[in-house]
Structure formats: structure tokens, C-alpha cells
Simulated scan of single mutants.
Amino acid sequence: MNAHTALVDRYFDTWNETDASRRKELIAATWASDATYADPLLSAQAHDGIDAMIRAVHERFPQHTFRRTTAVDSFADRLRFSWELSTPEGVSIIKGSDFGQVDASGRLQTVTGFLDEAPAAA
């Protein structure tokens, strides 16, 4: 597994972590301290903002999980990958593609997400 794939898999571990302390550890290991995230529905800056965003997603979609659905395509400090959010029963309800930039220390500097499939109420 290459470093970018390991980073993206840790990104999904972060999104799926419900324990606040463990999630903060994962955020610190995965994201640059001044990182940014943006998609059509959410945005966040820095570790505290990313944690609050993920916590809000857990509140809106309890026991749902994210998973990567494609290989991580990368070059230099850029990467892209697709994902899905599934219900506790395993039904995919939202699909998307994310594009990221990695900082010099190998952590996510920016992530921009696009929704490929989503219900109207997402």
C-alpha cells in the first residue's frame, strides 16, 4: 500500500470514528493543522472545525459508514478517490468523489468533495 492510499484509508477511519478522543487523534495524524475541507453541503477549517463537521455528520446519519469505492489516484501532492456513505444495513445512500492535496509532512492540506449521487434531502 502506498502512502497516499494509507492516508486516504485513515481519512475514512476518521470519518467513521465515533469516539471523540480517538477521532481527534486520527484528525491530528491525518490532517494538517490548518487544513480545509469543502463540499456542496459542508465546510471546515483546522482540526477543531473538521472534528465538529464529522460530529455533525454522525448526528445526522447515526451508525452510517463511509468507505472508499475506488483506488486512490495520485501524483505529486494531489490525489482523488470515490466513496459512498451506507446505512447500518449496508445500503449506499450517497456517493461522491474527493480531490485532495497533501502537505510536505504527508497529511491532508485540502479536500474538496463532490456529490455524485445523493437523495434530494441529503
Rank of each mutant, 00 (worst) to 15 (best):
L85V: 06
N2E: 15
T112P: 00
T5Y: 07
R10G: 04
R10K: 14
G90N: 11
I27W: 04
S82C: 11
Q63W: 08
A76M: 06
R107M: 02
I50G: 04
P62A: 05
A121Q: 12
P88D: 03
I94C: 03
Q63F: 12
D51Q: 08
A52Q: 15
R55L: 08
V91E: 15
W15F: 13
T14N: 08
Q63K: 13
D103M: 12
W83V: 02
V8N: 03
H4W: 01
G113S: 00
E59A: 11
F99T: 02
S97C: 13
A121C: 04
A120C: 02
L85A: 01
R22S: 10
W15V: 04
R78N: 11
K24D: 04
G106V: 03
Q101T: 13
E117I: 10
N16M: 05
V91K: 14
R55P: 00
D73S: 08
L85F: 04
K24F: 03
D34G: 07
D51V: 01
H58M: 07
E17Q: 15
R60H: 09
T5E: 15
R55I: 04
S74E: 06
V102K: 00
T30V: 08
E89L: 13
D48H: 11
R22D: 01
S74N: 11
F99D: 10
E84R: 03
